[in-house]
Nucleic acid binder design. Structure first.
Lengths: 232, 232
DNA sequence: TCGATTAAGTGATTAGATCACTTGATATGT
DNA sequence: ACATATCAAGTGATCTAATCACTTAATCGA
């Protein structure tokens, strides 16, 4: 979903469809209106509507059964719902995401330490350097740089499957996390924890890399938990 | 991609497009033929073609830029390419997949043991019972039942994110794994290991559940490694 | 009571035309 | 000569309205 080109009609349709499912309180398995009714309601023609539907189908948000109807898919629950009202729900998702990362990323850090190559370490250092430059400035850029650090660590581990998993998780929940994680005091500590992880990997100390990564993610989780209970 | 309904024209188109990209040796960023030429080559009309393109776009396999063209996306490399010739590559992917599962599933088993509810345990037992019935028979059904056991365990852990990750991994690599894992002597041992894991979860012994799951997956990995070196 | 039939509703596909956007070449002005 | 403006060709986006293919549940018949 790179936004290099201007949002097209079909782009907007996809989101309106998601909104329809969500605001309608639909659950997985529920049946949605027919293509004819949807195209009328959204004032677009059938082919245009179907393009939007195909995208949703590819994501697992809906399921289209020939001759039967359009049904809400199982994946609808894990989709990023751009609903600005439901801060708590999104925070809960975020905590689950962090639990997932706490499971996956520490072993990845250990694997990375086991096979750290010079050229790969460069990517890590570069991400941290970028993050360092944005420590006092732009929220978005700092967050992106930090995510790059985690991505690079995952890539170094040398397991494509796990790398892609982490990549997907960070991509999907990136914007939400960024929004919640905006607090100035955490910035420097985050950065220093990243540096410590890098040092452990560079020293090829798998055990410490794993432990530092775990501690780091637990720290982040703690911050978010507090943030949810007492939003600023 | 549930195959409850018969594959539609657009389904086939999606795969033909993937094949075109792959066999053409295209790399991410490469430009593909225009919609007009593609629709002619595949002998379908524009709207039909575009549905297939939208699905590929949603997956990140391609990128459509208004007024410019259709380009190969970055995600094309991590897509599952149904190439029947490359047994070694698929086996290598399979080993990476198992490494990934070895990272994720043992902690999930531990989490499941921590919050095992009666009704959820039923799903586990049911899957194992089904597997038991197929121990001496159909390959495909036995494998499906075994995968159901792993899925159910992941679901019990109570983390939607990790559950979906495991679900996706098992779905994507399921058929390949099944093909490689066809050996009669492993069946009973696999089944018994599953039973042991269930017992640990039922006894709420998180540590043992985790360790048994890890040992089980390592066993499977060992089998595959041997199978690749000396295919029967 | 159970099976086959059927009709209504639904998704899938067709056809060609037109609109909107990008891009590189051309022309223009300095 | 260089930079800017204009333009035309190529491309994706959308429209239109009709027909085909499939599912489902009610209906009918044995």
């Amino acid at each position: 979903m790179s936004e290099v080109t201007r949002p097209t009609l079909s782009d907007a349709l996809t989101e309106r469809m998601l909104e329809l499912i969500r605001s309608g309180g639909h659950r997985p398995g529920d049946r949605l209106p027919s293509t004819r009714e949807l195209s009328q309601r959204f004032a677009v023609t059938t082919p245009t509507l179907r393009e939007a539907l195909r995208r949703l189908e590819a994501t697992g948000a809906i399921e289209m059964r020939h001759g039967s109807g359009i049904y809400v898919g199982a994946a609808i629950e894990r989709l990023v719902l751009p609903n600005p009202n439901m801060r708590e729900i999104r925070a809960a998702q975020l905590l689950e995401l962090l639990d997932a990362r706490i499971v996956i990323e520490p072993p990845l850090a250990a694997m990375a330490a086991g096979r750290a190559a010079e050229e790969e370490l460069t990517a890590l250092k570069q991400a941290l350097a970028t993050a360092g430059r944005h420590l006092g400035g732009d929220d978005a850029e700092l967050h992106d740089a930090n995510m790059s650090f985690h991505r690079a660590t995952a890539r170094m581990a040398g397991n494509v499957v796990l790398h892609e998993v982490i990549d997907a998780l960070l991509t999907v929940h990136g914007p939400e996390q960024r929004e919640i994680l905006q607090l100035f005091d955490d910035r420097r500590r985050d950065h220093e924890e990243h540096l410590a992880i890098l040092a452990a990997i560079e020293a090829r100390d798998a055990a410490q890399a794993e432990e530092l990564m775990r501690a780091h993610l637990v720290d982040v989780k703690t911050v978010i938990e507090h943030r949810v209970q007492s939003p600023r």
